[in-house]
């Protein structure tokens, strides 16, 4: 039959093209590599920031500790989920892994925002609040660029069968890691505008990653050259 001949031909060409391959490291190992790169970036930022001031700030506001811890956990769990999702045969439920940490992160940031809001000098909605919000937005997006590039290369090395979901979850990992790293350069507690800026930045990073990551991941299968 013509169709059998066609598939025979496909199998023959694929077999002829076969070369030994190095197995992909497991998702936890790949996630650890990516987190290691984020940690190197964090070390670089720590060198250029006022660490004692950061420590004092975190001591004064316990919910900031919680927010930092939750954004770090979100980044770690989302990275692990993204690398799991990038391998064929892994369950789509991995995408739910970072959700509890994400809820905690948003809640803790909201608490900080609420506290600032109830302070007598207003909720940071003034000119200073807007300037700080712009600063946050720009920094999160800038910090996310190298993390996004590394993530795109690493995810592309696998073969994500759900490119959009993988890109969404890896975008969350990048945004959460960038928000964590932003703490090194963040002189104030979260205000309402500030929190909105974080949210917008997270959505921008996830959206950008959705476009870049999904395109990078969904390269259509093509036959090797004879």
């Amino acid at each position: 039959m013509a169709t059998d001949r066609r598939l025979d031909d496909v199998v023959a060409r694929l077999s002829a093209d076969l070369a030994p391959v190095r197995r992909l490291p497991s998702p936890p190992v790949r996630a650890a590599c990516w987190i290691g790169i984020a940690a190197v970036l964090a070390a670089g930022l720590a060198l250029s920031c006022d660490l004692p001031a950061l420590g004092r700030r975190l001591m004064v506001a316990p919910d900031m500790w919680l927010a930092v811890l939750a954004s770090t956990t979100t980044a770690v769990l989302a990275a692990l989920a993204a690398f799991e999702l990038s391998v064929p045969g892994r369950s789509a439920r991995w995408a739910l892994l970072p959700v509890p940490a994400l809820v905690l992160w948003m809640s803790a940031s909201g608490l900080g925002c609420l506290r600032t809001w109830t302070m007598p000098d207003g909720g940071g909605m003034g000119e200073g609040g807007m300037g700080e919000a712009r600063h946050c937005l720009l920094n999160i997006v800038l910090i996310s660029v190298p993390l996004m590039a590394v993530m795109a290369v690493m995810v592309r090395r696998a073969c994500p069968l759900r490119p959009n979901l993988t890109a969404l979850v890896s975008g969350l990992a990048i945004a959460a890691a960038s928000a964590t790293l932003l703490n090194f350069d963040h002189p104030y507690d979260a205000s309402a505008v500030d929190l909105a800026a974080h949210l917008v930045a997270v959505l921008i990073v996830m959206g950008l990653n959705q476009v870049v990551g999904a395109r990078a991941a969904s390269g259509r299968a093509s036959m090797p050259r004879p």
Partner: peptide
């Protein structure tokens, strides 16, 4: 057959991801 061909090519491209 179109789907089988697409799957075989994807298997070829993704073979390093199999554990």
């Amino acid at each position: 057959d179109d789907v089988v061909q697409d799957v075989l090519i994807t298997v070829h491209r993704a073979r390093h991801t199999y554990d």
